[in-house]
Simulated assay, not measured.
Amino acid sequence: MVTRVNLKQAVFQPAAGRRVAELVSAKTTGATGVTCRLVEIYAEDQGGARQPHVHDDFEEVIYVLDGEGKAWVDGEVIDITPGDLIVIPIKAGHRIINPGAGDLRILCFFPAAAVAIP
């Protein structure tokens, strides 16, 4: 069976430095091997200064939908803009930064059906 999810129906919950809508996961759609989240990163001066985190067992793919920001990955910082897709390596410390120039919306994909929201 095909599962269809529309971003317009996203239900957000607050999380550290951002708000998150779990679009696809074991919890929301019964997925057994993937999680996809829509994330809106708060500007740093509005509480968006999230600390780096690590995924020990899988890579993460991040796609930038709207806004401009920075990706910090193991000390390297790159600019990210709409249309960019980045791959975060396994065990790499990382965070996405919204410097405050506007909204920053990303899609995050994990090859796991359930990933805790830190």
Rank of each mutant, 00 (worst) to 15 (best):
H55Y: 04
D74G: 08
E76K: 15
I80H: 09
P52Q: 02
G75Y: 13
D56F: 01
I86Q: 07
E76A: 12
E59P: 00
D66H: 15
I62H: 01
Q46P: 00
G83S: 14
D56Q: 04
V64L: 09
P82W: 13
Q46E: 13
I86V: 14
E60G: 05
V87N: 07
G75K: 13
L85S: 11
Q51D: 10
A49M: 10
K70N: 11
G83K: 14
P89Y: 01
G48C: 08
G67T: 09
Q46F: 06
D56V: 02
V77C: 02
G67N: 11
I80W: 04
T81Y: 08
D57W: 00
I62F: 02
D56Y: 03
V73A: 05
H55N: 07
D74Y: 03
A71T: 09
D57T: 11
A49C: 07
V73Q: 05
P82N: 14
G83C: 13
G47Q: 05
W72G: 03
E76P: 01
D66I: 14
D74P: 08
F58W: 06
I80Y: 06
G75I: 15
G69L: 09
I86D: 05
R50M: 15
K91L: 00
D66P: 01
I88F: 08
R50W: 10
D79E: 12
Q46K: 12
L85K: 05
I78D: 07
P82Q: 14
G47K: 06
D57M: 00
P82M: 13
G67K: 13
D79T: 15
I62S: 04
I88L: 09
V87R: 09
Y63V: 15
I80E: 09
D57K: 07
D66A: 15
P82I: 15
H55F: 02
H53R: 06
Y63C: 11
D66L: 14
K70Y: 14
V87Q: 06
H55D: 05
